[in-house]
Write a protein that binds this DNA or RNA. Structure first.
Lengths: 177, 177
DNA sequence: GGTTGCATGTAAATGGTTACATGATTGT
DNA sequence: ACAATCATGTAACCATTTACATGCAACC
Protein backbone atom coordinates (compact mmCIF):
# COMPACT_ATOMS: atom_id res chain seq x y z
CA UNK A 1 0.00 0.00 0.00
CA UNK A 2 1.82 3.06 -1.24
CA UNK A 3 1.28 6.74 -0.54
CA UNK A 4 -0.89 7.10 -3.64
CA UNK A 5 -3.43 4.70 -2.19
CA UNK A 6 -3.24 6.35 1.20
CA UNK A 7 -4.02 9.71 -0.42
CA UNK A 8 -7.01 8.19 -2.20
CA UNK A 9 -8.24 6.99 1.17
CA UNK A 10 -7.95 10.42 2.72
CA UNK A 11 -9.61 12.09 -0.28
CA UNK A 12 -12.47 9.58 -0.27
CA UNK A 13 -13.65 11.18 2.98
CA UNK A 14 -13.34 14.80 1.88
CA UNK A 15 -11.48 17.10 -0.52
CA UNK A 16 -8.09 18.17 0.79
CA UNK A 17 -4.93 20.00 -0.12
CA UNK A 18 -1.59 18.21 0.13
CA UNK A 19 -0.90 20.06 3.32
CA UNK A 20 -4.16 18.92 4.87
CA UNK A 21 -3.52 15.33 3.84
CA UNK A 22 -0.22 15.38 5.64
CA UNK A 23 -1.84 16.74 8.80
CA UNK A 24 -4.16 13.77 8.82
CA UNK A 25 -1.18 11.43 8.89
CA UNK A 26 0.57 13.52 11.50
CA UNK A 27 -2.20 13.99 14.01
CA UNK A 28 -5.47 13.05 12.32
CA UNK A 29 -7.46 9.83 12.06
CA UNK A 30 -4.66 7.95 10.22
CA UNK A 31 -1.82 8.95 12.52
CA UNK A 32 -1.75 5.83 14.65
CA UNK A 33 -1.33 3.28 11.87
CA UNK A 34 0.14 5.05 8.83
CA UNK A 35 2.59 7.79 8.00
CA UNK A 36 3.46 10.00 5.04
CA UNK A 37 5.46 13.18 4.61
CA UNK A 38 5.34 16.05 2.11
CA UNK A 39 8.11 14.52 0.06
CA UNK A 40 5.95 11.53 -0.79
CA UNK A 41 2.49 13.15 -0.76
CA UNK A 42 3.09 15.86 -3.36
CA UNK A 43 4.60 13.53 -5.96
CA UNK A 44 1.79 11.04 -5.26
CA UNK A 45 -0.88 13.69 -5.90
CA UNK A 46 0.84 14.64 -9.11
CA UNK A 47 0.79 11.05 -10.36
CA UNK A 48 -2.81 10.55 -9.24
CA UNK A 49 -3.83 13.66 -11.19
CA UNK A 50 -1.98 12.48 -14.28
CA UNK A 51 -3.74 9.12 -14.18
CA UNK A 52 -7.15 10.69 -13.59
CA UNK A 53 -7.79 9.25 -10.13
CA UNK A 54 -8.08 12.72 -8.60
CA UNK A 55 -8.93 16.22 -9.84
CA UNK A 56 -7.29 19.40 -8.73
CA UNK A 57 -8.75 22.89 -8.36
CA UNK A 58 -7.02 26.03 -7.15
CA UNK A 59 -8.67 27.82 -4.25
CA UNK A 60 -7.86 31.44 -3.58
CA UNK A 61 -7.21 32.51 -0.04
CA UNK A 62 -6.91 35.85 1.73
CA UNK A 63 -3.33 36.84 2.36
CA UNK A 64 -2.03 33.35 1.60
CA UNK A 65 -0.85 31.55 -1.46
CA UNK A 66 -3.42 29.60 -3.43
CA UNK A 67 -4.42 26.23 -2.13
CA UNK A 68 -4.58 23.29 -4.46
CA UNK A 69 -7.55 21.24 -3.42
CA UNK A 70 -7.75 17.68 -4.66
CA UNK A 71 -10.95 15.68 -5.14
CA UNK A 72 -11.23 11.96 -5.82
CA UNK A 73 -12.84 10.88 -9.08
CA UNK A 74 -15.07 7.89 -9.75
CA UNK A 75 -12.06 6.12 -11.22
CA UNK A 76 -10.15 6.96 -8.05
CA UNK A 77 -12.90 5.46 -5.89
CA UNK A 78 -12.72 2.30 -7.94
CA UNK A 79 -8.94 2.17 -7.44
CA UNK A 80 -9.40 2.58 -3.68
CA UNK A 81 -12.04 -0.12 -3.68
CA UNK A 82 -9.70 -2.48 -5.51
CA UNK A 83 -6.83 -1.70 -3.17
CA UNK A 84 -8.74 -2.32 0.06
CA UNK A 85 -10.11 -5.57 -1.34
CA UNK A 86 -6.63 -7.05 -1.75
CA UNK A 87 -5.04 -9.33 0.81
CA UNK A 88 -3.38 -6.96 3.32
CA UNK A 89 0.40 -7.05 3.58
CA UNK A 90 1.80 -7.78 7.02
CA UNK A 91 2.16 -4.84 9.40
CA UNK A 92 5.52 -3.15 9.39
CA UNK A 93 6.77 -1.93 12.72
CA UNK A 94 10.18 -0.49 13.47
CA UNK A 95 10.71 0.59 17.03
CA UNK A 96 14.12 1.99 17.81
CA UNK A 97 12.85 2.60 21.32
CA UNK A 98 12.27 -1.10 21.94
CA UNK A 99 15.60 -1.95 20.35
CA UNK A 100 17.35 0.37 22.78
CA UNK A 101 15.52 -0.96 25.81
CA UNK A 102 16.38 -4.49 24.68
CA UNK A 103 19.98 -3.47 25.32
CA UNK A 104 19.16 -1.68 28.57
CA UNK A 105 22.39 -3.07 30.06
CA UNK A 106 24.24 -0.56 27.91
CA UNK A 107 22.19 2.37 29.19
CA UNK A 108 22.36 4.46 32.34
CA UNK A 109 19.37 3.80 34.66
CA UNK A 110 18.62 7.53 34.74
CA UNK A 111 18.50 7.59 30.93
CA UNK A 112 16.07 4.67 30.90
CA UNK A 113 13.91 6.38 33.47
CA UNK A 114 13.74 9.46 31.26
CA UNK A 115 13.01 7.46 28.12
CA UNK A 116 10.17 5.58 29.76
CA UNK A 117 8.67 8.77 31.18
CA UNK A 118 8.79 10.35 27.72
CA UNK A 119 7.18 7.32 26.18
CA UNK A 120 4.41 7.25 28.74
CA UNK A 121 3.73 10.92 28.11
CA UNK A 122 3.63 10.24 24.40
CA UNK A 123 1.12 7.41 24.77
CA UNK A 124 -0.96 9.55 27.10
CA UNK A 125 -1.05 12.36 24.56
CA UNK A 126 -2.10 10.09 21.72
CA UNK A 127 -4.69 8.44 23.93
CA UNK A 128 -6.11 11.81 24.77
CA UNK A 129 -6.34 12.70 21.13
CA UNK A 130 -8.03 9.45 20.21
CA UNK A 131 -10.44 9.58 23.14
CA UNK A 132 -11.38 13.12 22.21
CA UNK A 133 -12.60 12.04 18.78
CA UNK A 134 -16.21 12.13 17.82
CA UNK A 135 -17.51 8.59 18.34
CA UNK A 136 -20.31 8.94 15.81
CA UNK A 137 -18.32 7.58 12.90
CA UNK A 138 -18.71 4.97 10.18
CA UNK A 139 -18.30 1.49 11.67
CA UNK A 140 -14.84 0.90 10.20
CA UNK A 141 -13.44 4.21 11.39
CA UNK A 142 -14.84 3.71 14.87
CA UNK A 143 -13.40 0.20 15.06
CA UNK A 144 -9.93 1.41 14.10
CA UNK A 145 -10.14 4.36 16.46
CA UNK A 146 -11.11 2.16 19.39
CA UNK A 147 -8.38 -0.29 18.49
CA UNK A 148 -5.86 2.54 18.77
CA UNK A 149 -7.27 3.47 22.15
CA UNK A 150 -7.03 -0.12 23.37
CA UNK A 151 -3.41 -0.50 22.24
CA UNK A 152 -2.20 2.81 23.62
CA UNK A 153 -3.96 2.11 26.89
CA UNK A 154 -2.23 -1.26 27.14
CA UNK A 155 1.16 0.27 26.36
CA UNK A 156 0.68 3.04 28.89
CA UNK A 157 -0.44 0.58 31.55
CA UNK A 158 2.57 -1.61 30.86
CA UNK A 159 5.02 1.25 31.33
CA UNK A 160 3.27 2.42 34.45
CA UNK A 161 3.14 -1.04 35.98
CA UNK A 162 6.57 -2.34 34.95
CA UNK A 163 8.76 0.61 34.10
CA UNK A 164 10.19 0.84 37.58
CA UNK A 165 11.05 -2.88 37.56
CA UNK A 166 13.44 -2.40 34.69
CA UNK A 167 15.13 0.60 36.28
CA UNK A 168 15.23 -1.22 39.63
CA UNK A 169 16.86 -4.32 38.16
CA UNK A 170 19.59 -2.25 36.56
CA UNK A 171 20.25 -0.22 39.70
CA UNK A 172 20.64 -3.47 41.66
CA UNK A 173 23.03 -4.79 39.05
CA UNK A 174 25.09 -1.59 39.40
CA UNK A 175 25.26 -1.99 43.17
CA UNK A 176 26.41 -5.60 42.81
CA UNK A 177 29.36 -4.52 40.68
CA UNK B 1 18.60 2.88 13.16
CA UNK B 2 19.64 0.99 10.04
CA UNK B 3 20.12 -2.71 9.40
CA UNK B 4 23.84 -2.44 10.18
CA UNK B 5 23.06 -1.42 13.76
CA UNK B 6 20.39 -4.09 14.04
CA UNK B 7 22.93 -6.70 13.00
CA UNK B 8 25.39 -5.44 15.60
CA UNK B 9 22.68 -5.86 18.19
CA UNK B 10 22.01 -9.45 17.18
CA UNK B 11 25.72 -10.28 17.08
CA UNK B 12 26.32 -8.71 20.50
CA UNK B 13 24.35 -11.62 21.97
CA UNK B 14 26.04 -14.41 20.04
CA UNK B 15 27.91 -15.15 16.81
CA UNK B 16 25.61 -15.76 13.88
CA UNK B 17 25.51 -16.31 10.15
CA UNK B 18 23.47 -13.99 7.95
CA UNK B 19 20.83 -16.66 7.70
CA UNK B 20 20.57 -16.96 11.48
CA UNK B 21 20.33 -13.19 11.87
CA UNK B 22 17.40 -13.11 9.55
CA UNK B 23 15.64 -15.86 11.47
CA UNK B 24 15.89 -13.75 14.61
CA UNK B 25 14.02 -10.95 12.86
CA UNK B 26 11.51 -13.34 11.41
CA UNK B 27 10.58 -15.34 14.47
CA UNK B 28 13.22 -14.67 17.11
CA UNK B 29 13.49 -12.16 19.95
CA UNK B 30 13.49 -9.13 17.61
CA UNK B 31 10.53 -10.16 15.49
CA UNK B 32 7.88 -8.10 17.26
CA UNK B 33 9.54 -4.70 16.89
CA UNK B 34 12.01 -4.86 14.01
CA UNK B 35 12.35 -6.45 10.62
CA UNK B 36 15.10 -7.15 8.09
CA UNK B 37 15.39 -9.40 5.06
CA UNK B 38 18.32 -11.09 3.31
CA UNK B 39 18.58 -8.30 0.79
CA UNK B 40 19.51 -5.82 3.49
CA UNK B 41 21.32 -8.12 5.94
CA UNK B 42 23.99 -9.48 3.59
CA UNK B 43 25.09 -6.06 2.30
CA UNK B 44 25.06 -4.77 5.89
CA UNK B 45 27.37 -7.57 7.06
CA UNK B 46 29.69 -6.84 4.16
CA UNK B 47 29.96 -3.17 5.13
CA UNK B 48 30.36 -4.00 8.82
CA UNK B 49 33.23 -6.35 7.97
CA UNK B 50 34.89 -3.71 5.79
CA UNK B 51 34.76 -1.16 8.58
CA UNK B 52 36.04 -3.61 11.19
CA UNK B 53 32.91 -3.72 13.36
CA UNK B 54 32.52 -7.46 12.85
CA UNK B 55 34.80 -10.37 11.92
CA UNK B 56 33.90 -13.25 9.68
CA UNK B 57 35.00 -16.88 9.79
CA UNK B 58 33.96 -19.74 7.52
CA UNK B 59 32.54 -22.80 9.23
CA UNK B 60 32.46 -26.09 7.40
CA UNK B 61 29.34 -28.21 7.58
CA UNK B 62 28.45 -31.77 6.65
CA UNK B 63 26.65 -31.99 3.35
CA UNK B 64 25.91 -28.29 3.31
CA UNK B 65 27.62 -25.24 1.93
CA UNK B 66 30.00 -23.41 4.24
CA UNK B 67 28.51 -21.10 6.80
CA UNK B 68 29.95 -17.64 7.26
CA UNK B 69 29.79 -16.88 10.93
CA UNK B 70 30.11 -13.27 12.01
CA UNK B 71 31.41 -12.08 15.39
CA UNK B 72 31.22 -8.55 16.77
CA UNK B 73 34.52 -6.79 17.54
CA UNK B 74 35.32 -4.40 20.37
CA UNK B 75 34.93 -1.54 17.91
CA UNK B 76 31.55 -2.99 16.96
CA UNK B 77 30.45 -3.10 20.58
CA UNK B 78 31.40 0.54 20.93
CA UNK B 79 29.37 1.42 17.82
CA UNK B 80 26.35 -0.43 19.27
CA UNK B 81 26.81 1.36 22.58
CA UNK B 82 26.88 4.72 20.81
CA UNK B 83 23.81 3.86 18.74
CA UNK B 84 21.64 2.80 21.67
CA UNK B 85 22.65 5.89 23.61
CA UNK B 86 21.20 8.22 20.98
CA UNK B 87 17.76 9.73 21.23
CA UNK B 88 15.41 7.10 19.70
CA UNK B 89 13.59 8.00 16.50
CA UNK B 90 9.81 7.77 16.61
CA UNK B 91 8.29 4.34 15.99
CA UNK B 92 7.31 3.64 12.44
CA UNK B 93 4.15 1.63 11.95
CA UNK B 94 2.43 0.88 8.68
CA UNK B 95 -0.66 -1.24 8.96
CA UNK B 96 -2.43 -1.98 5.72
CA UNK B 97 -4.81 -4.11 7.72
CA UNK B 98 -6.02 -1.14 9.76
CA UNK B 99 -6.22 1.01 6.65
CA UNK B 100 -8.51 -1.55 5.06
CA UNK B 101 -10.72 -1.89 8.11
CA UNK B 102 -10.95 1.89 8.27
CA UNK B 103 -12.77 1.61 4.94
CA UNK B 104 -14.84 -1.36 6.04
CA UNK B 105 -17.83 0.10 4.18
CA UNK B 106 -16.09 -0.93 0.97
CA UNK B 107 -15.65 -4.54 2.13
CA UNK B 108 -18.00 -7.51 2.20
CA UNK B 109 -18.93 -8.46 5.79
CA UNK B 110 -17.78 -12.02 5.14
CA UNK B 111 -14.37 -10.73 4.03
CA UNK B 112 -14.05 -8.68 7.20
CA UNK B 113 -14.99 -11.65 9.28
CA UNK B 114 -12.25 -13.67 7.62
CA UNK B 115 -9.67 -10.91 8.00
CA UNK B 116 -10.37 -10.51 11.69
CA UNK B 117 -10.22 -14.24 12.29
CA UNK B 118 -6.87 -14.39 10.50
CA UNK B 119 -5.57 -11.48 12.53
CA UNK B 120 -6.68 -13.01 15.78
CA UNK B 121 -4.97 -16.25 14.87
CA UNK B 122 -1.83 -14.31 14.02
CA UNK B 123 -1.79 -12.52 17.36
CA UNK B 124 -2.46 -15.80 19.16
CA UNK B 125 0.47 -17.42 17.38
CA UNK B 126 2.87 -14.59 18.24
CA UNK B 127 1.60 -14.54 21.81
CA UNK B 128 2.26 -18.21 22.10
CA UNK B 129 5.77 -17.77 20.82
CA UNK B 130 6.49 -14.91 23.20
CA UNK B 131 4.96 -16.67 26.17
CA UNK B 132 7.01 -19.75 25.43
CA UNK B 133 10.26 -17.84 25.79
CA UNK B 134 12.60 -18.44 28.65
CA UNK B 135 11.86 -15.72 31.20
CA UNK B 136 15.32 -15.81 32.73
CA UNK B 137 16.75 -13.07 30.56
CA UNK B 138 18.68 -9.84 30.98
CA UNK B 139 16.39 -7.13 32.37
CA UNK B 140 16.08 -5.23 29.07
CA UNK B 141 15.24 -8.31 27.03
CA UNK B 142 12.66 -9.45 29.55
CA UNK B 143 11.05 -6.01 29.61
CA UNK B 144 10.74 -5.90 25.82
CA UNK B 145 9.46 -9.48 25.70
CA UNK B 146 6.77 -8.79 28.28
CA UNK B 147 5.83 -5.59 26.49
CA UNK B 148 5.22 -7.63 23.35
CA UNK B 149 3.07 -10.05 25.32
CA UNK B 150 1.03 -7.19 26.80
CA UNK B 151 0.42 -5.57 23.40
CA UNK B 152 -0.51 -8.75 21.57
CA UNK B 153 -2.81 -9.74 24.42
CA UNK B 154 -4.55 -6.36 24.20
CA UNK B 155 -4.91 -6.64 20.42
CA UNK B 156 -6.25 -10.17 20.65
CA UNK B 157 -8.71 -9.18 23.37
CA UNK B 158 -9.90 -6.23 21.29
CA UNK B 159 -10.63 -8.39 18.26
CA UNK B 160 -12.36 -11.02 20.37
CA UNK B 161 -14.48 -8.47 22.22
CA UNK B 162 -15.33 -6.11 19.36
CA UNK B 163 -14.76 -7.94 16.09
CA UNK B 164 -18.38 -9.07 15.86
CA UNK B 165 -19.61 -5.50 16.46
CA UNK B 166 -17.99 -4.33 13.27
CA UNK B 167 -19.36 -7.18 11.21
CA UNK B 168 -22.78 -6.74 12.86
CA UNK B 169 -22.91 -3.03 12.07
CA UNK B 170 -22.15 -3.68 8.42
CA UNK B 171 -24.69 -6.46 8.10
CA UNK B 172 -27.35 -4.17 9.55
CA UNK B 173 -26.39 -1.47 7.09
CA UNK B 174 -26.80 -3.95 4.23
CA UNK B 175 -30.26 -4.91 5.43
CA UNK B 176 -31.28 -1.26 5.63
CA UNK B 177 -30.40 -0.69 1.98
C1' DG C 1 7.77 -34.82 -7.69
C1' DG C 2 6.98 -30.78 -4.86
C1' DT C 3 7.76 -28.13 -0.87
C1' DT C 4 10.40 -26.60 2.97
C1' DG C 5 14.72 -25.56 5.15
C1' DC C 6 19.49 -24.52 4.87
C1' DA C 7 22.79 -21.21 2.81
C1' DT C 8 24.81 -16.91 0.21
C1' DG C 9 24.79 -13.30 -2.54
C1' DT C 10 23.88 -9.41 -6.42
C1' DA C 11 21.38 -6.07 -9.33
C1' DA C 12 17.67 -3.48 -10.53
C1' DA C 13 13.82 -1.16 -9.21
C1' DT C 14 11.02 0.98 -5.88
C1' DG C 15 9.91 4.00 -2.65
C1' DG C 16 10.60 7.26 0.76
C1' DT C 17 13.25 10.68 3.51
C1' DT C 18 15.90 14.79 3.86
C1' DA C 19 17.40 18.93 2.45
C1' DC C 20 16.64 22.73 -0.16
C1' DA C 21 13.96 26.73 -2.10
C1' DT C 22 10.37 30.35 -1.21
C1' DG C 23 7.41 33.41 1.35
C1' DA C 24 3.52 35.63 4.00
C1' DT C 25 1.12 35.69 8.56
C1' DT C 26 0.35 35.08 13.40
C1' DG C 27 1.57 34.57 17.95
C1' DT C 28 5.19 35.02 21.96
C1' DA D 1 13.19 38.99 17.03
C1' DC D 2 11.91 34.26 16.69
C1' DA D 3 9.23 30.38 16.15
C1' DA D 4 5.33 28.27 14.37
C1' DT D 5 1.69 27.61 10.94
C1' DC D 6 0.21 27.73 6.38
C1' DA D 7 1.50 26.38 1.66
C1' DT D 8 3.91 23.96 -2.48
C1' DG D 9 7.21 21.67 -4.70
C1' DT D 10 11.93 19.45 -6.49
C1' DA D 11 16.25 16.89 -6.38
C1' DA D 12 19.54 14.19 -4.40
C1' DC D 13 20.18 10.66 -1.54
C1' DC D 14 19.31 6.59 1.01
C1' DA D 15 17.42 2.21 2.25
C1' DT D 16 14.92 -1.54 1.39
C1' DT D 17 12.41 -4.81 -1.35
C1' DT D 18 12.07 -7.95 -5.10
C1' DA D 19 13.70 -10.76 -8.37
C1' DC D 20 17.22 -13.43 -9.88
C1' DA D 21 20.98 -16.97 -9.51
C1' DT D 22 22.50 -21.49 -7.35
C1' DG D 23 22.25 -25.95 -5.03
C1' DC D 24 21.81 -29.85 -1.69
C1' DA D 25 19.05 -32.43 1.90
C1' DA D 26 15.03 -33.90 4.11
C1' DC D 27 10.37 -34.85 4.22
C1' DC D 28 5.75 -35.93 2.49
Amino acid sequence: MDVKTLCLGVLSRRDCSGYEIRKQFEEGPFAHFQDAGFGSIYPALKKLTESGLVNCRAEEQDSRPDKKVYAITQKGRQALFDAVNQQPAADKLRSDFMFMLFFADLLAPAAIDRMIAQRSAHHAKLLNRLEGCDRVLPAGERFVLNYGIAIHRAALAYFEDHGHELVGALLQKDVAE
